[in-house]
Simulated scan of single mutants.
Amino acid sequence: MTKRKPLSTVVAESLSEKIRSGRLQPGAQLPTEAELCAEYDVSRTVVREAVARLRSEGMVIPQQGRGMFVSEAPAPRNFSIPQDALKTLPETVSLLELRLSVEVEAAGLCAERRTESEASTIRRLMEQVDARNEDPGAVPVHYDYDFHLAIAKSARNEFIHGFLEYLRPVIVPRFQLGHVVVPELKDAYYARIHSEHRKIVEAIEKQDGRAARDAMRKHLQNSLERVRALALASGVETTDAAQKAAAASLFSDLKGSAAPTG
């Protein structure tokens, strides 16, 4: 049975085809979010993910206060991650390995270059993200991606930030956290992630580049090992039920290991 494409991919491919065929000419304004929602019968989130993909490919550009416009000269797409290649846990592992190679340096540069205002914003965002403690079955594994993007933005390297923005549409909607954390370990899991986040933020506030790199490396390596363990336990093209069953046998070390959240 062929797996259906994500709705955001369907919308992005449709808009891309309109641009390539000339139905949407260079310089033309894209329909509004509301119009695209009505045309494709999808949510605003789906539309935003689709437009973000087109923007990452250089097909559309924003004009402040006006909206999105078809690029006059679309940039060649030198790097891409096809949706069809992102169906299994092994690909999620590969994406985490890619993030690890980029975000460790981003954290160090952020610590060395950030302003006081940016450090405050990063801490505030961390507290907001970590205070939610939502049902793992209702949030993506990468629920803290905005926190990571804020760090990358303050690294003052537009290519690092742009690259991680490019990854957002393909990495964030991946597997739900419920595939990785069983409900009874939810609080301990969130506490551990908050502890990892806090070490990153404290290093950034101290402008300690080495400590920030070490803390980010530890955080992403832990995420990588959790997902890698799940991939090994559940196999490649397994069902949601099989993946959840595998998750139940993992991370038993979380029991009773909740880190202080203060």
Rank of each mutant, 00 (worst) to 15 (best):
G27W: 14
E103W: 01
R217L: 08
L24W: 09
R192D: 10
A152Q: 08
L224T: 01
A131G: 11
R156S: 12
E116H: 02
T2D: 08
Q207F: 01
R4V: 03
E35Q: 14
L89R: 10
S195I: 01
R66K: 14
S195C: 13
E49S: 11
P90C: 11
A111W: 03
R77Q: 12
P173Y: 08
I171Y: 10
P76W: 03
M1E: 08
A215I: 07
V129S: 06
L100A: 10
P31R: 13
E39Y: 06
L98M: 08
P140K: 10
D144A: 14
S234D: 02
A138H: 13
A191T: 02
I19P: 04
N78R: 14
D208P: 07
K186G: 06
D41W: 01
L54E: 13
L149S: 02
G256Q: 09
I61D: 11
K5A: 15
S80I: 08
Y190A: 07
T32S: 15
P90Q: 09
L149G: 10
V102H: 09
S56W: 01
A150M: 12
L220S: 09
G209I: 02
D214Y: 03
A247N: 03
A28Y: 05
Y166W: 11
A155I: 11
Y190K: 02
S71R: 01
S154I: 02
C110R: 00
R156F: 07
G67K: 10
A258P: 09
A106Y: 06
S154N: 11
E158V: 14
D253W: 12
V93I: 11
E13L: 06
P6E: 02
H179F: 11
P76C: 00
A131E: 12
A259L: 08
I61V: 15
K5E: 15
K18C: 04
A150S: 13
L7P: 10
P260Q: 13
S56Q: 04
G108E: 04
T45S: 12
E103S: 02
I193S: 13
V102M: 05
T238R: 09
G162I: 06
S94T: 13
Q176Y: 01
L96G: 01
A52I: 00
S71I: 02
Q207K: 13
A259P: 06
P6L: 10
G162D: 03
F251W: 15
E57I: 02
Q128R: 12
K5I: 05
G65E: 04
